[in-house]
Each structure stands twice: as structure tokens, then as C-alpha cells.
Design a protein around this nucleic acid. Sequence first.
DNA 1: GTCTATATGCGGATAGAC
DNA 2: GTCTATCCGCATATAGAC
Lengths: 188, 188
Amino acid sequence: MQIFARDGYSNASIAEVASTVGLTLPGLLHYFPSKTSMLLAVLELRDQQSQRWLGQGPATLEAAMLAPPVPWQQLLGQLRMINRANAAIPGVVRAFSLLNTESLTEHHPAQEWFSRRSTLVLGQVSRSLHQALERGEIADGIDPDQIAAEIMAMMDGLQVLWLRRPQQVDLVRYFDAYLDRLQAALQR
Amino acid sequence: MQIFARDGYSNASIAEVASTVGLTLPGLLHYFPSKTSMLLAVLELRDQQSQRWLGQGPATLEAAMLAPPVPWQQLLGQLRMINRANAAIPGVVRAFSLLNTESLTEHHPAQEWFSRRSTLVLGQVSRSLHQALERGEIADGIDPDQIAAEIMAMMDGLQVLWLRRPQQVDLVRYFDAYLDRLQAALQR
DNA sequence: GTCTATATGCGGATAGAC
DNA sequence: GTCTATCCGCATATAGAC
């Protein structure tokens, strides 16, 4: 994770990972047979972490999509908490910001993972808002898909800007301010 | 630009650039003495393009920061137009999205360029809003720096999401919807 | 201005000893 | 389980002929 955070995936050298953990390259490759398998292990680690954050939710991502939607106020609260937690682990955020765009290239081993992640996040937010619409909890004319994409774009975009200018960009305060305004607009 | 758009910078091979334009590698290096110089040429090209978009504005970026701020409504209109233009050139957007995060790594040759770009964009938006505040054109309690970072994060974040899911994410409509709501909130 | 040939280095991965 | 030695490919860049 440290090396991927510093160099991204394709630019990282697993030989350096090996020496960092006090092994030679073949020694490390005994545990992870290829560079790709190392990356997938890191992504899997993140999946486990996410599940811990989201508490006692459904076990698999598919199950989460099938379960009844989370109330929208609660969901936005969860996103605030995730963002807050992210602000304390810039290395992890860095790794995933780099991997996120890097995985836009063809045949990238993390492509599936990020595609899946966006499907999940967009889907969850969209479904929550859709439910709120049906119940008349939020204003008509709201497009759940648009709002969902907006929120995800803001989270990821703010992270990149924060990584570039940590002194000027306050990740927590800025995201909260954005969500405050969004919530006010939705409720109207 | 094509090759950088497909592979990013460090992953791109200038030998492939050479063969794409019908040259051998040394033939290409006759014009661009190094890979880095090619990248800088691409960035410079983008600078020229930006200047054309922003019309008859100040010639240099420094001059733009010293000139009186653009009225905020007009500035947001310019951002809408830039976003609209971007939607027609996914290859360029792709190249710069990849380079943007890639340049977060140390010693990356595009680091300065993107750092400078963020300084400029954040500064311009922030100054416009600051002026509007002084004139009482927008609501008190607005933080110009926060709003500026928000807008830039949204532009860059939406681009990445759009590149990943072009079918689901409508770059123009989503950004306009976001700015509509932001403008309404500012004016209140 | 463009080429062939080459220098040089680093990358991931494997063979096989211990 | 970890090592040394090695293979192989691809990268940027250079030398020097034409």
C-alpha cells in the first residue's frame, strides 16, 4: 500500500516492496506470485475495511444492492463519516486516487474493482434518493442518478485537490459544507 | 496526446508515438530530445488552447491573477462553456485526468504545471466570489475558497466518472445541474 | 532530417540450490 | 520459506552513417 500510494501501480516496483519488508524479490513472490496478485490483495484489504466502516450491513456488495435502501439522511451521514476517516489516512487515499484514474486505462488489473465500486456507490445513493422521492421526503424534480454521481465526483475530486494542496484544502470541512448545502436543497 | 491519453505519461512509450507518426524513435527524438520535453509540449499546447477559450483575457496566467476579477456570474458561465467543450474531446479530457493524478507523485514532470493550474483556477474563482461578497451580490457566510475548491473538484471528479461510465454520466447536464443549484444557493 | 545499430538500465518473473 | 543466479523484454537515450 505504501509503495502503491507513492508511485501508483504500474510505476511501482515490487523489488522495492520486497526490500522494504526485508525480503528479496523471489522471497516476496513466494507469497504473491505476481505483481497483479499483490494489487488485488491490497484492494481486497480495502473491501474488508469498507465493510467494517459500514457496520453490520449486508455481507457482500451484491447483497447490499438487493437489500432495502438506507434512508437518505443516514446514508449521507455515513458518507460524511467515511470522508472524515479518510482525512486521517492520506496514504490510503493517495493510493486509491492514483489507482482510480490509472485503472481507466485498458487491461488495468484494478479496472473491474473500480468499476464495481462505482456501480455500488452510485447505486446505493441513487436508490436511497429514489425511495425518498416516492415518500415525498425530498423535492420533486430531483434526479437521483445525477445527485449520486455528483456526490461521488465531489468525494473523489476533493481528495485529489486535498492531496495536492493539503494546506489550503480542508477535506472534512469542504465536503461537509457541500453536503450541508445539498441537503438543504433536497429538503426544500 | 493520443498516446498519453491512452496510457498516461509514465506508462506511455515514445517508440509507439514515433511509429504512430511514421518515424523511428531517433527520428522523433530529433524534434523532442526527451520524453519529458514531449510532455511539456503537450501541456503547452493545452495552455494555448485555454487562452483561446477564455477569449481576449490577459496574456499570461500571472497577468490574469493581477487583473480585476471577472464578475462571478460570467465566470461560472465560462466554466460551463469549458465543460461543454470538454465533453466533445474525451481523448483530451482523458489525457489530462490521467496526468492530473499521476502528477501527484514526486518528481513528476507535470507536477508544476498542474500545481500552477490549480493555483490559477482556485484563485480566479475565489477572487470573483470575494468581490461579489464585498458588493453584497451573494449571501453572507459564503467561503470563496471553499466554493472555488468545490467547483474545481466537481469538474475534475465528474470527468473521471464520465470517462468510466460515459453511458450513465452526462458530463454537461450533470455539471450544469450542479452549478444551477450552487448559483441559487449563492444568490439567496 | 532520418536512419541503423547499440549502449545501458530496470522491470517482472523463473530455475533451482539450500 | 528464502536465497543466488539468470532470463527476457522493453524502456529511454546516444553514436554515427547517410
